[in-house]
Deep mutational scan, measured.
Amino acid sequence: MQIFVKGLTGKTTTLEVEPSDTIENVKAKIQDKTGLPPDQQRLIFAGKQLEDGRTLSDYNIQKESTLHIVWR
Rank of each mutant, 00 (worst) to 15 (best):
K33Q: 11
V17M: 04
T9M: 11
W71D: 08
I30F: 08
D52A: 06
R72E: 15
L36Y: 09
N60K: 08
K11V: 14
S57M: 10
Q2L: 13
L56W: 01
I61K: 00
Q49A: 11
F45M: 04
N25Q: 11
S20P: 02
L36W: 12
Q49E: 13
L43P: 01
L8W: 12
K48V: 15
I30M: 07
E16A: 08
Q2R: 15
T34Q: 04
S20C: 06
I23N: 01
K6H: 10
V5S: 02
Q40D: 07
T12A: 06
F4M: 05
T55G: 02
F4V: 05
M1E: 02
I44C: 07
M1C: 03
T9K: 13
E64F: 13
F45K: 02
T66G: 02
E51Q: 07
K29I: 07
I69C: 05
W71A: 14
L43Y: 02
A46R: 11
S20K: 08
T66C: 05
I44Y: 14
D58Q: 07
G10K: 04
R42E: 12
R54G: 05
V70W: 10
V5R: 01
H68E: 14
T14G: 05
V17F: 04
H68G: 04
V26S: 00
D21P: 00
P37E: 07
I61H: 00
Q40Y: 10
Q62H: 07
D32Q: 12
R54Y: 14
E16R: 09
P38T: 13
R42Q: 14
T22I: 04
P19M: 08
Q62R: 10
A28Q: 12
K48L: 14
V26E: 00
N25K: 14
K48Q: 14
L8D: 08
Q62D: 09
G53N: 11
V5T: 03
E51P: 02
R42C: 09
Q41N: 06
F45A: 03
V70Q: 09
S65L: 03
D32G: 08
P37W: 10
L8F: 14
T12H: 08
D58R: 02
V26Q: 00
I69S: 03
I30T: 02
K27R: 05
L56G: 00
H68V: 11
F4D: 02
Y59F: 03
L36C: 06
K48F: 11
N60F: 08
V5Y: 03
Q49N: 09
A46Y: 07
L15R: 00
F45C: 03
I44E: 12
K6Q: 12
I69L: 15
E64R: 09
V5M: 04
A28Y: 12
T22D: 03
G35A: 04
K48G: 05
F4C: 03
G35Y: 03
R54V: 05
E24C: 05
E51W: 06
N25W: 09
T66F: 07
I30N: 01
T22V: 04
Q40A: 08
M1F: 15
N25T: 15
N25D: 12
P38Y: 11
Q62I: 13
I30K: 00
T14F: 09
L43C: 01
G7L: 14
L36G: 05
L43H: 01
L50F: 01
K63G: 12
S65H: 07
D21N: 07
L36K: 06
T55A: 05
I23K: 00
S20W: 14
M1L: 06
K6C: 06
L15I: 09
S57A: 14
G35E: 03
I69D: 04
E16C: 07
I3R: 00
L43S: 00
Q62Y: 10
E16Q: 13
L36M: 15
I44G: 03
G53T: 10
S65R: 03
K29C: 03
K11T: 12
G7Q: 09
T12W: 10
T22A: 04
I23P: 02
T12E: 11
T12L: 13
V5N: 01
D58C: 02
E51G: 04
R42I: 15
T66E: 07
G53S: 11
N25A: 12
I44S: 11
L50G: 01
G7E: 12
E24M: 14
S20M: 09
P38E: 07
L50R: 00
A46K: 14
K63T: 13
A46D: 13
S57W: 08
T12G: 06
G10W: 06
Q31V: 04
I69Q: 05
M1P: 01
E18L: 15
L43Q: 00
G47L: 04
R72M: 15
G10Q: 07
Q31C: 07
L50K: 00
R72Q: 15
P19A: 08
K29R: 07
V70L: 12
A28K: 14
G35D: 04
E51L: 09
V26F: 03
M1S: 02
K27S: 02
G53Q: 10
D21K: 01
T22K: 09
L56A: 02
K11C: 07
I61A: 01
M1Y: 14
Y59C: 02
I61G: 01
T34V: 09
V5A: 04
D32N: 13
R42L: 14
T22C: 03
I61F: 03
G35L: 04
D32F: 10
F4Y: 15
Q41E: 02
K27H: 02
V70N: 07
L67I: 15
T14A: 11
Q41Y: 15
Q40C: 07
G53M: 08
R72S: 15
N25Y: 11
K6Y: 08
Q31A: 14
E24Q: 09
H68C: 07
V5W: 02
L15K: 00
W71Q: 13
H68P: 01
T34K: 03
T55Y: 05
W71P: 11
F4R: 05
T9W: 12
T34D: 04
Q31L: 10
D52F: 04
E64Y: 13
K29Q: 09
Q31W: 15
S57V: 07
I30V: 05
D58H: 11
L56Y: 00
F45D: 01
L43F: 03
K48A: 13
E51D: 07
Q49H: 11
Q62N: 09
K63I: 06
V5C: 03
L43E: 00
D52Q: 04
T22M: 07
Q40L: 10
V17I: 04
T9G: 15
D39G: 10
I61S: 00
D52I: 05
L15T: 01
D52N: 12
T14Y: 08
L56I: 10
D39P: 07
K6D: 06
K63H: 15
T13E: 12
R54E: 04
S65E: 08
D39A: 10
D52S: 06
P37R: 14
G7N: 11
A46C: 06
I61T: 01
G47H: 06
T12Q: 07
R72I: 15
N25S: 15
L8Y: 14
T22F: 08
S65F: 07
I3F: 01
V17T: 03
G53V: 07
S65N: 11
S20F: 11
K48C: 05
I3W: 01
I3T: 01
T55W: 03
K27D: 00
K27G: 01
Q31H: 15
I61C: 01
G53I: 06
T14R: 10
I44N: 06
K29A: 07
F4L: 06
W71L: 15
N25P: 00
E64D: 13
K33P: 03
T55R: 10
G53H: 13
G35Q: 04
I69K: 01
N60G: 12
A46P: 01
K48P: 01
R54F: 14
K11P: 15
S65W: 03
T13D: 08
D52E: 11
L15Y: 08
L36R: 06
Q49P: 11
